[in-house]
Design a protein around this nucleic acid. Structure first.
Lengths: 142, 142
DNA sequence: TATTGTTATACTCTATAACTATA
DNA sequence: TATAGTTATAGAGTATAACAATA
């Protein structure tokens, strides 16, 4: 079929990811965040009771030790707090603070706007298909 | 529309890229390569006259200074060589050696096989659509 | 002057192992 | 014995700036 390296889906995925992460980091900079921190904040903010660090790592595809450092940074910035789970004292629930919720809202809008550049050539239906396919890549890999 | 962070295309792209890069790196390890080095080798191997480092950086989305280091490593491994362009002595053409061509072939098969895990849930037609969309993301960002 | 490649440096991200506290 | 979190460390990836050689 005459496939060349330019058709390699692994390459295309990592290159597209690169441009999107760069654009998002640039947009998040004015909010004092980077994508990885923002992803932790966003997930915490969407879960009123908070998520355990283990759950965060599982969803994000990060090692638990990386989650610790990201949460440390967000705690230092006053955007999330660690609460010991009432049902299991090993578990630390990560919960967004009021300030964290404000920052997530503002940073989220900046990140969404920054995404419009790289996604400009994709219609809404295509974006839905892309979401679906990328989710299935994650599912198959797990 | 009730969008949550799990729908964020930036997040989905970077997470999918992560699993694919990890799987590919694991498969390339026995060939003494990592994905970035492999990508340079593959592009050089496909172009008999070689590509300039500038071209490599442009296609791969890498800074020229990063290309220098990757080519250094491939040269040290005997997989590519630098040739001064006859038409412009500033330009160094990166050309695969015979050994580089052999390694690219074997490593390419290993990388392709490793991709089948993460891509297992995508049919051939979907993969074509995914290639197309990811290429347009790159185009729009450039 | 502009472009190609190079060197240097700092920072971020990733991978791994060892350890603690709780279960 | 297993799980959640933590600490430490090394290696890989990314971002910038300054510079030499050539155009």
């Amino acid at each position: 079929m005459g496939r060349t390296f330019a058709d390699d889906l692994g390459f295309l995925l990592s290159r597209a990811s690169g441009v999107v992460v760069r654009a998002t980091n640039a947009a998040l900079a004015e909010h004092g965040l980077r994508v990885r921190q923002y992803s932790v904040l966003a997930l915490a903010e969407e879960s009123p009771e908070g998520l355990s660090q283990r759950e965060l790592g599982t969803v994000l595809g990060l090692d638990p030790s990386q989650v610790v450092l990201l949460v440390d940074e967000l705690v230092a910035a006053g955007l999330v707090e660690r609460r010991t789970s009432p049902s299991d004292r090993r578990t630390r629930l990560v919960v967004a603070t009021p300030e964290g919720r404000r920052v997530r809202e503002a940073a989220g809008q900046a990140a969404d706007a920054a995404l419009e550049g790289p996604l400009a050539l994709l219609g809404e239906a295509e974006r839905d298909r892309l979401r679906d396919m990328l989710t299935r890549v994650w599912t198959a890999a797990g």
